[in-house]
Every structure is written in structure tokens, then in C-alpha cells.
Design a protein around this nucleic acid. Structure first.
Lengths: 249, 249
DNA sequence: TCGGCACGACTGGTATACAAGCATCGGTCG
DNA sequence: CGACCGATGCTTGTATACCAGTCGTGCCGA
């Protein structure tokens, strides 16, 4: 029996454009944008049919999403979009704060040593954020990019992926909060404050501003929780949701 | 068409004892303990045959492991145990340090407010660590438990799961380092130092000790890298490994 | 002898078939 | 009227079949 041999370098333009990736991305987006609200039943068969693929890539995507905590799978019962678990939101908040604050510590001592390209990127991003009439989804994209680029500035850009995977619950909650309150302009101002402190080389101030900013986001979550408790899990884990769907055909 | 309905509470003793879980746990353990060294080819068919299951649970496990970065999957080519990527090790180190240091900040102000049960658990753990003739795997288990319990002490126990998922590369590297140097006793002493500081309510000292400890672990990784570079990835991602297997039958 | 090309044995990706468990509904019996 | 209990249709878990791509190998011809 022989096996393929590889030399030390390969083009690997192979960007793995498989259907599972596409399905995963689609489902994750729909969960995070609340197109699939917490509690929605996700039947592997229905999803496969509606997406035009077989159960296999759908199933594999659901497994990944369940690993992220965005979906709960109950064998022989069903799969459901998980409710927003306050404990998991708190975890994500804690993790994010820990990572982003720690990354500020690793910024170069002198502002002059900052990567000018990244700084420009951050400046352009903030300008975009303050553009009037900005859509919610657009603001979210900019917000994501801002925080990620800030991490790259301290050389920890790749750590963002880990934050993202834990940030799912937080994001859903944030979206709930931002849907009815246009507080995004306030967040934009905080972003400016953070970047100013970084560019001034005042790490301590940057940390304070960042902490304030992230805590504000978290408080937003708590506020919306008081208003729409049905979207949140009352008891961590263990409890699926109620389905009341009848289809005539 | 009707759908199942659930009341708000369910025993759910259903501990999901599926074969995929078993396969995943087995494979992950074998990768982390270096029973499957970096570069090993993991054929879905072979694994399925040797584990006595079909390709499906094996495949799903490999997908999860590849999401953790412990395995690389190249469509139509093969799946391989990924080499220890120094960049990912650094990421894990950064993330871990950020989380563990931040958790220390959230300890109760007075040592008297610490959960006595957890404190006892930590004390027993440290006693075990200093037991002479302790096996390497046993030390690793105790080390894991120590750090997790320390997180629980500040109410962030569930954040440990995120650290674990990113910690895979770090763990493999640590294992490499500890296989030939019995530095575990030094680490045990550092653990004692950390807990002492926590119990004394000296958060600043605890942070310093923790940082020193985690950095020591990281330095160990760098040392072993210089000695056994073939186990590490030379170029991040994109490069599979060489297979030289011939089987006569 | 050396280069090129086609075949074959493998890979993982996808689709499908079958198995096992759970919830609902409707009949039946006490 | 109420409690039990099996039929039934759904669910996910697992096994298998088929597909397309990739590489090694060896024939074949110059």
C-alpha cells in the first residue's frame, strides 16, 4: 500500500469551497441575525431540502454550531436554535474583555511604532461608523472589523477567531438590544475614544475606555433581557423549546 | 404536520452517549498524548475499521478536531495530525494568560469569601502534585484540574472550556517538553505559590506568580522547539506532511 | 534510457438507506 | 370520564454507496 507524498510547499489554492462551508456559513448567519430566532426548530431534512443539498453537510454544520453553543441537538428529538443563555453571554463578555484588555498591554511602547497601515484602516473604519444613515448590519460589520484590527495592532490578530467562536451568544443579544435602540452612535464615540488613547500611547486610558465600552455593550444585553425574557434561557441547558407549527399542504 | 412539544423542564439524564462522542474523545486523546504524533496520516476508512464503526462518526470527529486545529483535512488528499504551529501555540498562550490573569481580578476582595469547598479541592490537588513518583499523565490531569478550579474560584469556571479548545497545540508542545525533562516539580511549586497568594488575598502577587508560571510553560515549548524542529510547522498552514509508509501483506 | 501519458488505487465530499428512540394521537378498557 | 397503550410519523444516529479529485506506478514509444 502506498500513500501520497508531499513536498514541503504546495500552492494550495484549494480554498476548500465545499458545500458544507457554504451551509455552515448560511446557517450561522441566519442564527446570528435572528432570521432564525432562538427556539426555532431546525430539522435536518427540511434544511437539506430548502438548501438543495443532502443531510450530510447540513448535519455536519449543525454539529459545529452546537459546539459553538448556538444550536442544541437532542438525539431522536430534534435540533433547535438555542436561547440566549445569560451565563454564556457573561462568559463571552468575560473572555472578550480579558483578551482585548490584555492585547492593549502588548501594544508597542511608543505610538510611533504602530503599524501605520493598520492605523489608517482604523481611522477609515471610524469615519465610516459616523456616517449618518448607517444601517445596523453595516455598523456591526464595522464594529467587528474595528475590534479585530485593534487586536492585530498588538500582534494578536489570530486570537480574534477564538473570541468570535465564543461571541455568538453575545452577538445575538447585542442585536436584540440594538434593534430598538439606536445607541450605535454612542458606541461609535467610544470607539473613537479608545483609538485616541492608543494613538496617544496612553495604555491605561485605553484600557479604561475599552472596559467601559465593553461593559456598556453588556449592560445593553441585560436591559433587553428584562424586556424580552422569553428569548433567554431560564435554566441553563437541559431545556428545549416549545414548537407550535402546523403546516397545511 | 405536527411537532413534538416540550414542557419547560425535562430530566434529560440523556447524557448523549453516542459513538461519535466516544470516537472524538479517543482521537483527541491520542493526538494530545502524541500517540498520534504530528504528521500522522489519519485515513477515515482505516480509523473506522480499527475503531469498529462506520466512517460517519469518524468523519464528524475529524471535522471537529480540524476546527480545533489539531487535524488538517485536505479534500481528496488526506487528513493529517497537524504539526505544532508556533503561531497557534503563541495564540493559546496569550489567550490563556489573558483569561487566567483576568479571572484573578474577579476574585472576592476578602479571602474569607472564597468558596471553602473549592479551596479544599485546590489544597488536595497540590498535595497530590507533590507526591513522589507521580506519572506524567497524572501530573497533567492534576495541572488541568488546578487551573480550572482556580477559574471556578472567581466564578468563571465555564470559560475554561474555551481555553481548552484553544489549548490543544500548547498541550502537545508541553508534553513534548515534559517528556525528557522532569520540570513538573518546579511547576508544582509555582502552583503552590499562586494558591498561597490567592489565599492571602494578595491579588497582585497572584498575578505575578501566575504570569511567571505560564511564561515558564511557554519557554519550555520554545526550548523543545529548538531541539525537535521537525515536529513543528515551518510555515503556518498550507503545508501537509510527508508520508513514508509501506505495508507488506 | 528517458519522457509522457493513461490507468488504478487511494483520498475525502456527498447522497442515500436503514436503525433506534421519542412524542403525539386515537382507540380501548376499567 | 379517565388512564393506559399501541400505531404512526417524526426526529437524529449510523452505515453504506457513489462521486470527483489526486497521486503513484508502470507501460509504451521515441
Amino acid at each position: 500500500m502506498t500513500a501520497p507524498r508531499y513536498d514541503e510547499r504546495m500552492p494550495r489554492s484549494n480554498r476548500q469551497r465545499t458545500s458544507r462551508r457554504a451551509v455552515y456559513a448560511t446557517l450561522r448567519r441566519k442564527v446570528l441575525t435572528l432570521e432564525f430566532p432562538p427556539g426555532t426548530a431546525l430539522s435536518e431534512n427540511e434544511l437539506a431540502a430548502s438548501l438543495g443539498v443532502s443531510r450530510t453537510p447540513v448535519r455536519e454544520s449543525l454539529i459545529l454550531l452546537s459546539e459553538e453553543g448556538l444550536v442544541q441537538v437532542f438525539p431522536q428529538v430534534g435540533s433547535f436554535v438555542s436561547r440566549v443563555d445569560p451565563a454564556k453571554v457573561a462568559d463571552a463578555q468575560f473572555l472578550r474583555e480579558a483578551v482585548e484588555l490584555a492585547s492593549l498591554e502588548d501594544l508597542p511602547g511608543l505610538p510611533a511604532e504602530l503599524d501605520p497601515e493598520l492605523v489608517d484602516e482604523l481611522r477609515r473604519n471610524l469615519e465610516e461608523q459616523q456616517r449618518p444613515g448607517l444601517g445596523l448590519e453595516d455598523f456591526f460589520e464595522l464594529d467587528e472589523a474595528f475590534h479585530q484590527t485593534l487586536l492585530r495592532l498588538s500582534g494578536h490578530g489570530s486570537a480574534w477567531a477564538t473570541v468570535v467562536s465564543a461571541k455568538g451568544h453575545l452577538d445575538r443579544a447585542r442585536r436584540l438590544g440594538l434593534y430598538d435602540t439606536a445607541t450605535s452612535s454612542g458606541f461609535a464615540a467610544q470607539h473613537v475614544e479608545i483609538l485616541d488613547a492608543v494613538l496617544a500611547g496612553d495604555i491605561a486610558l485605553a484600557r479604561t475606555a475599552m472596559r467601559t465600552h465593553l461593559r456598556a455593550v453588556f449592560d445593553d444585553v441585560e436591559r433587553i433581557r428584562a424586556r424580552s425574557p422569553e428569548l433567554f434561557a431560564t435554566d441553563s441547558g437541559t431545556v428545549p423549546v416549545r414548537r407550535n407549527i402546523v403546516v397545511w399542504e
